[in-house]
Amino acid sequence: MIEFITGVLLLSIFLALYRIGMGPTPSDRAVAIDILGILVVGFCVIISLATGRDFYMNVAISWSLLAFIGTIAIAKYLEGKGFDE
């Protein structure tokens, strides 16, 4: 069961990675990175479930907050970029 869930999540992560690689615009990559962050949080939960070790949940919490801050930073950067030109 865990193997199956891990497989599906890994497939989703590869799809997100494909979008990060292919772009075409920086915004597409930023969106995909945001999504990847949320997927990784889910993945941490599955690892925690599979290994029975709690500290992966701490990783999940901090990852979700850091991904948020990172995405906001990228979004603000993109927003400012339009005005420079």
Binding site: T25, P26, S27, A30, V31, D34, I38, V41, V45, D54, M57, N58, A60, I61, S64, L65, A67, F68, T71, I72, I74, A75, K76, Y77, L78, E79, K81, G82, F83
Partner: peptide, 29 residues
């Protein structure tokens, strides 16, 4: 911890998406 994390994601993810959409639009995508 999982419930706390769920709460964080429910708040942060839509906010981040909104900021990204606005940023992309302003950047001229």
């Amino acid at each position: 911890k999982a419930l706390i994390c769920m709460f964080f994601i429910l708040i942060t993810s839509p906010t981040a998406a909104h900021a990204l959409a606005k940023g992309s639009y302003r950047a001229g995508v």
